[in-house]
Write a protein that binds this DNA or RNA. Structure first.
Lengths: 165, 165
DNA sequence: CTCCTAGCTATAGGATTTGATAGCCAGAAC
DNA sequence: GTTCTGGCTATCAAATCCTATAGCTAGGAG
């Protein structure tokens, strides 16, 4: 019914997660506005006004989030200039930002299945070119899809005490 | 640099995401406390007191979240009784709850790479039995791993107007 | 030199989230 | 009975998130 803890972790009463990666991630990007801005960035949006209009959020919060996410390193600012207009900045995803693709699309996959109507909403995520359906989930590097029961958590060899994970 | 929109979606200026699945998902489970409770449930926790102690959150918030998540249908309450104690309820993940495994572990994977120290923290997610490393990300049903550039969004055949996705 | 606009900044207020602390309640132990 | 305990509920205060509204500012257009 759940995943497995191996080695020194097997007895869960002996350790505690003090600064787990999930909590840290949620502290950093755990807001609706951050997720929607990331969605837009994945969709190709780079400019302030487009973020605001497409997410239907106010200028204030878009500005605050872009500043925050840029500060964290999910976006890099890059100058651009439309001919006849003055120079502005656009927001380009860094690798750190792009690495959130699994998290954001996993949320989309879940919402599509469980929160939208019967058909899962009008949009589908597919492979470019082939149109093959795309799924997000855990798998081994050799390509096996895994369920929760197939997962295990192990400690690094030099683990010293209950800290993060 | 981003994903592709195909068919009627190709011109992004003609449509808008009004109730996208990502926003809906964040409305429902987009809190740190929800994610930590789900983490614990994936780790095998089922009882109120264990949720509270393991997540280090207060009783009040754990109770509020469990009630909320149960109401949404992520948990089902099941009576249990330790011999010599009175009957209580424990919180069992439903399929809807278990379907959040990709989202939660994707956050864990990201935090591990980008927010923890150099080694990514002391814990690793592996396949039970083999110990093979586990990754979370988008792939086709036939097993190809995909990058952001390989993804495309298409509309259902009977799509009528700009709504969700 | 004045107007216009994209891209922000400032402020005020409400809703939500969280922590801290305290209290309740039903049954088992005695 | 009375006490004890697991499993909650209630209340208060602080922080965060979001909306709404208004204003600023640097350059191009005229």
């Amino acid at each position: 019914m759940s995943l497995t803890f191996e080695g020194v972790l097997a007895d869960r009463s002996t350790w505690r997660l003090d600064n787990c990666s999930i909590g840290k991630s949620m502290d950093v990007i755990g807001t609706r506005s951050s997720m929607l801005i990331l969605r837009e960035a994945f969709y190709g949006t780079t400019r302030f006004d487009d973020f605001a209009r497409r997410t239907k959020m106010t200028d204030a919060i878009v500005a605050a989030r872009l500043r925050e996410l840029t500060g964290i390193g999910l976006f890099a600012k890059r100058a651009y200039q439309v001919p006849g207009r003055r120079s502005r900045y656009e927001y380009i995803l860094t690798e750190k930002g792009r690495d959130l693709v699994p998290a954001v699309f996993a949320l989309m996959q879940w919402g599509k299945k469980h929160l939208q109507g019967e058909d899962g909403g009008p949009l589908r995520l597919v492979e470019r070119g082939t149109g093959e359906p795309v799924m997000i989930g855990p798998r081994t590097v050799s390509g096996r899809d895994l369920d929760l029961e197939d997962l295990a958590i192990v400690a690094h060899g030099d683990w010293a005490g209950p800290q993060s994970g």
